[in-house]
């Protein structure tokens, strides 16, 4: 991993609004060319909404309430729908969580991959089909000539996710957003799919935003990690630093709650730590969203939103308490 400097995506103070509250607030992060950034957090932390907001595919009830997302000199948050359509599938590809339901059941996989090539690269039917076969081969589906004419129900879960990946990378995007790409797959297939994404990302020199709640995945595949809690970024670091020196109480809780063989943490030796309470407690208007569940919390935590501090180069944390104590 060599540090690349150029940012291809720069998200600044992104907020997503529902009717009565903001599930994502003032979220900032950036992705550099060719790097894999992991967005980590539990269910309800706003990571999937963030991904959908970048694609401008938020459900009707949600909207981007503020901030910007600069992607190759253009603000994704303010592009017109027509301009956005040219970005989707062409400059940014996306893979979803459920390979079982994310493919159209009545169209052949070849047809579904061809579609992207035909709208963005203007290929005719025959050329697009030929290219689809190559793409199936690229994502290592055996017998692509035959598979290209099959329907999703004739493929296994892992193969379907490979088809989704082939579709997402068909136009060699600069950025691939993978929203929990392996959650629905079994463990051996998970590793294969992640390895495939990692290889493609290198071969096609594309950056990846990997959304996951699996810390094992983060440790193995990410170059940088953003930990989210209740729509806020609480900590950001490279995985080595994050695992060896977690700062935010929430990150510490997360790591304590997950068995990691490499670090010698197993449920056989000692009980796994539990974070008390639930994310549902993060409903206050101001202050640190994690404070109700935090054993370090002080009255000042609830008074104002915690600033993002940078106690070490590249390691940011939204908790003044730990920084003060550590310093």
């Amino acid at each position: 991993m060599k540090p690349a400097v150029e940012k291809i995506l720069d998200v600044r103070d992104l907020s997503i609004g529902l009717k009565s509250f903001r599930p994502v607030q003032n979220l900032s992060f950036s992705v550099r060319r060719g790097e894999t950034l992991a967005l980590v957090g539990e269910s309800g932390s706003g990571k999937s909404l963030t991904a959908l907001a970048l694609m401008r595919l938020l459900p009707e009830v949600a909207r981007i309430a503020g901030g910007s997302a600069t992607f190759m000199d253009r603000d994704l948050a303010s592009l017109s729908e027509a301009e956005m359509r040219k970005v989707r599938g062409s400059d940014i590809g996306m893979i979803f969580q459920e390979p079982m339901t994310s493919l159209n059941p009545v169209l052949t996989v070849g047809r579904q991959i061809s579609e992207v090539l035909r709208i963005h690269e203007g290929l005719d039917r025959r050329l697009a089909m030929a290219r689809s076969v190559e793409l199936l081969d690229l994502v290592r589906i055996p017998e692509p000539q035959r598979r290209v004419h099959e329907y999703p129900h004739q493929l296994s879960g892992g193969m379907r996710q490979r088809v989704m990946i082939a579709m997402a990378v068909a136009c060699s995007p600069k950025l691939l957003i993978a929203d929990e790409p392996t959650t629905a797959l079994d463990v051996t297939i998970q590793a294969q799919v992640l390895e495939l994404i990692d290889n493609l990302c290198r071969d096609l020199s594309m950056a990846v935003i990997l959304i996951t709640h699996d810390l094992g995945v983060v440790g193995q595949w990410a170059d940088r990690v953003v930990v989210m809690y209740a729509g806020r970024k609480v900590e950001e670091a490279d995985p080595e630093t994050l695992f060896s020196r977690p700062l935010h109480p929430y990150t510490r809780g997360l790591l304590g709650a997950s068995p990691r063989m490499a670090a010698g943490i197993s449920y056989r030796d000692q009980a796994l730590v539990e974070i008390p309470g639930s994310i549902a407690s993060a409903t206050m208007a101001t202050g640190c969203r994690f404070a109700p569940r935090c054993d370090l919390a002080e009255p000042s935590c609830l008074a104002a939103d915690p600033d993002l501090l940078e106690p070490a180069a590249g390691h940011r944390v939204a908790c003044p308490i730990v920084v003060r104590r550590g310093a």
């Binding site: 694609m55 595919l57 359509r85 040219k86 970005v87 989707r88 599938g89 062409s90 590809g93 996306m94 979803f96 459920e98 339901t101 994310s102 493919l103 159209n104 059941p105 579609e115 992207v116 709208i119 963005h120 989704m164 579709m167 997402a168």
Partner: peptide, 14 residues
């Protein structure tokens, strides 16, 4: 509301 419709939109279809 199906997932594949979201996929289709993510491909950049009108």
């Amino acid at each position: 509301a199906q997932d594949y419709v979201r996929t289709a939109r993510a491909k950049g279809l009108s």
